[in-house]
């Protein structure tokens, strides 16, 4: 039985038995290589679920939709390891109760889909630890290497060029499971710290503020990057911030549901290279 069929069967059982009220998974998209999120509340609909190598979107952000979890019923969700890490962070930041989440874990290597064992978020800790120990994924990217080798001036003008494209649509924010604030700092206008117009200054402010807000929290699922209509390589900024946080504080985002946020906590042996 393929993983897709296994998970359909499991979804059917959970829904018909009333163990979960909803399954958030992937369905067919507008073409053969696109998948769109689907939200299934009835056992009859499980045949709509698709699981293949095109299922790349991190669906965890849908869990914090207002009111979804407030009835304390459980919800099942299809998640890759990044998505599972996102559940840990959301739980650590009190945005959801991890007990309410039933995980359909899977991973994709090449075009092969493998199932990840477990249902509760704690059961995936070994997998997450092995990702932390493993080589960072974005390192394979040529562009990242290229940016790393640039002088600060070159790097600045690289990002200036990239950010110049930004149209302030905030698709990155909407796609990101970590951007759950009810009022984003850019929507605050008393005072208006971040310039609203999409010119260089405002664009810089927005993208840099977002990178800082995600440092120590980003799981590098790539949702923002894929959502960007003007193809700004946002994953590279976030990857760089994740590396900084890992190097400076040995903090890998989303290792457990009780992990303390790196920028809000301190350890006595934290490096203090920035304090003279």
């Amino acid at each position: 039985m393929s993983i897709e069929e296994q998970y359909r069967t499991r979804a059917k059982e959970l829904l018909s038995g009333g163990a979960v009220k909803m399954v958030i998974g992937y369905g067919k998209g507008s073409n053969a290589k696109r998948r769109r999120p689907i939200f299934i509340s009835s056992a009859d609909e499980v045949e709509r679920l698709v699981l293949d190598d095109a299922c790349i979107t991190n669906l965890s952000g849908y869990l914090v939709s207002e009111g979804l979890l407030s009835d304390e019923k459980r919800v099942a969700v299809f998640l890759r390891p990044e998505g599972i890490r996102a559940i840990n962070i959301l739980a650590a930041e009190s945005q959801l109760d991890a007990e309410q989440i039933v995980i359909f874990g899977f991973d994709v290597a090449g075009n092969e889909v493998t199932a990840l064992k477990g249902i509760n978020v704690e059961e995936f800790s070994d997998i997450i630890d092995s990702i932390k120990e493993g080589a960072p994924e974005a390192a394979e990217e040529e562009l990242f290497e290229k940016i790393e080798k640039m002088s600060p001036q070159e790097r600045f003008s690289f990002w200036q060029k990239e950010f110049a494209k930004c149209i302030k649509c905030y698709a990155c924010r909407q796609a990101c499971p970590m951007c759950y604030c009810r009022r984003c700092i850019v929507d605050s206008n008393q005072p208006q710290w971040v310039n609203t117009s999409s010119h260089t200054l405002g664009n810089f402010e927005w993208n840099i503020v977002r990178a800082f807000h995600l440092s120590g929290r980003c799981v590098e699922c790539g949702n923002c990057d894929r959502a960007c209509p003007v193809n700004i390589p946002l994953r590279l900024i976030n990857h760089r911030m994740a590396e900084e946080v890992l190097g400076a504080f040995d903090h890998f985002a989303g290792t457990s549901k009780t992990q303390e946020p790196v920028l809000a906590s301190f350890k006595k042996d934290d490096s203090e290279t920035f304090i003279l």
Binding site: S94, Y180, C181, R182, R183, S188, E260, L263, A264, S265
Partner: peptide, 13 residues
């Protein structure tokens, strides 16, 4: 309180 997202980062910080 209207805009607080309840992440509790401040409680720790």
């Amino acid at each position: 309180e209207a805009t607080c997202a309840g992440c509790w980062g401040c409680v720790l910080a």
